[in-house]
């Protein structure tokens, strides 16, 4: 066996300046068949794997490394549903609150005031709970309240994630029919849901910590 890589058509490079969707030859859609992507990932990984280019030119070796790392980045970005949604919104030029962190002014606040009030109240209870714990006390009523809050926020969290998936469908449909107004609307709703998700995620985490479970 000679080194066939130099004579046969070399594995295809991802297009220049490629986004992670195009790495897998996918359009910018959200409801993806992750099984198929996983298979493509392993197949492409083998194709461009540095081991196969151990004998090849330095240039080829370099190429193999670059392709491998691009492939890994792309897979990681698309695999996680939330990371994928955030990535797509960024690609589409939507400013996410996280990105605005270093900006002097935020674009807008997407979070409804009722949620802020809830977040604040719950934080007050959590603080009380922690203080009680420090004094070696346990207030059963407070604990019950927090357990209830935990269930409620876990439910809200699941609801937000489900709502994001619903928007995926709308985004995909609008993309397929090339309706940019609907795309924009879906993108904005997803950005708002992601903001909300961040608050609720913090709450779920903090309540869990305070309850020690």
């Amino acid at each position: 066996m000679t080194n066939g890589d130099d004579v046969s058509t070399p594995p295809q490079s991802a297009p220049q300046g490629a986004d992670y969707f195009s790495v897998f030859s996918l359009p910018r859609l959200l409801d993806l068949d992750m099984k198929a992507i996983e298979r493509a990932f392993y197949r492409r990984s083998r194709e461009v794997h540095p081991d196969r280019f151990a004998q090849a030119s330095a240039e080829k070796q370099q190429w193999s490394l670059e392709q491998t790392s691009l492939l890994n980045d792309a897979y990681r970005a698309l695999k996680d549903p939330i990371a994928r949604t955030e990535y797509l919104l960024r690609l589409e030029g939507i400013t996410l609150a996280e990105d605005a962190a270093t900006a002097d002014r935020q674009e807008k606040k997407n979070v409804p005031p009722e949620l802020l009030a809830e977040v604040f109240e719950l934080n007050m209870q959590l603080e009380e709970m922690r203080m009680n714990a420090q004094m070696g006390e346990d207030d059963p009523q407070l604990r019950r309240d927090l357990e209830q809050a935990q269930a409620e926020f876990a439910g809200q969290f699941a609801g937000i994630e489900a709502a994001i998936r619903t928007e995926w469908g709308k985004w995909d449909a609008a993309s397929n029919s090339d309706n940019s107004a609907d795309k924009q609307a879906a993108a904005e709703r997803m950005a708002a849901l992601l903001d909300k998700r961040r608050y609720v995620r913090n709450l779920v985490r903090d309540v869990q910590q305070a309850l020690g479970n």
Partner: peptide
Amino acid sequence: GLVGAPECGDVMR
């Protein structure tokens, strides 16, 4: 005034 920072989920009153 009750406000929040969606970047991190922190709240301030």
